[in-house]
Nucleic acid binder design. Sequence first.
DNA 1: TATATAAGTGAGTGTTCACTCACTATAGCC
DNA 2: GGCTATAGTGAGTGAACACTCACTTATATA
Lengths: 201, 201
Amino acid sequence: MRIRKNAADRRDEVIDATLRLASDVGPERITTDAIAKAVGLSQAAVFRHFPHKEDIWAAVLDWLRARFAERWAGMAAGETSPERRLRAIVRGQLEFIRANPGLPMILMSRELHTRSELLRAGIAGLMEMFHRHLAGVLEEGKRNGEFAADLDVPRAANVVIALIQGLALRWSLSGRAFDIVSEGERALDLALAGMASRSRN
Amino acid sequence: MRIRKNAADRRDEVIDATLRLASDVGPERITTDAIAKAVGLSQAAVFRHFPHKEDIWAAVLDWLRARFAERWAGMAAGETSPERRLRAIVRGQLEFIRANPGLPMILMSRELHTRSELLRAGIAGLMEMFHRHLAGVLEEGKRNGEFAADLDVPRAANVVIALIQGLALRWSLSGRAFDIVSEGERALDLALAGMASRSRN
DNA sequence: TATATAAGTGAGTGTTCACTCACTATAGCC
DNA sequence: GGCTATAGTGAGTGAACACTCACTTATATA
């Protein structure tokens, strides 16, 4: 029997299935047929809701953007000191990745980057959002004295992002063989404190 | 006119072309036809030299493994202190990436990881080689007093790798819009010295 | 110089994929 | 209960792709 739902619900189901499939097989190998099966539709029906496959990805990016905004807005209220805020942001991002393992695969996908300028810009936009968010907290901590007075804020934000992405990459490729959240917190500790011996200089 | 070369030369040409194409279009979008055109052969001729496409990737990984071994053997002789050695290793790796922009795309490719267990193991092996190499130097520096006495060496090595990979990712996706070598050296400075203010604790 | 061997080719094949189209069934409204 | 708008379908289509095959041509050496 044919189950008929309204368009908005189906769109959400497709977005959801796509995110889940992204972590299972990788974004480049998601086919419209796989999405259809995951949602319980015929392949042709997918194209009722999204005229082109690219439009599915655009919707996924919109969904992610909305989630990020939500999370960061909620989180800003909590912690007091900039360093604690930074840790909370990183932890939050890692928890989000743990809950949505497809996310890093999407952000890192060369496929999505090169197939369409729209998607490239969308992904770059997400990363910029995060960079600005981090830079704001780092700047505060620098004024505050919690971070080094001569800290190069934009570069430090990039270092934090690189840490998260490098970690997420290893996590994904290892088949999620370790806990990305606790491992990420340790990595951040190292980056904040430094590896060099404290006795020198 | 038909140009005929011996098999070994053709294999090298194919490996070379594949590495170059990996940076241009990404590993997952390299077709045997594109490789054939790059080398100046018909598509069918590619299969004279490699029975399956997977074999081309295996050969590329072998080539990379040999290059790494070469470089690291040559480099060990140079620098004196562990910290300088670490910096030299990272710099060397970044220079290698700059010269072979396809490398990070290959190492990060989910496609290659999931399509074949042989390739997955090959890539994991390359990363392990690098991890061991870094851990050795960090261990030395820890004994030496240049690095923190309580440094968690394997984790620190992972942090360095994450930094390089995260940086390489941003570099690739940005269309190589900055100098990965100098940017990487600054990032390493930050990770070694730490971001937190020195006045605290 | 004849011959064997190996490098090369054009023209396929089967599969996978995004996307189309003519048609059908259902929900919501009058 | 009948009508309309729209979610849904099965059966395509054409393009891209890895890989095959029967056949050709160049090279090394007996």
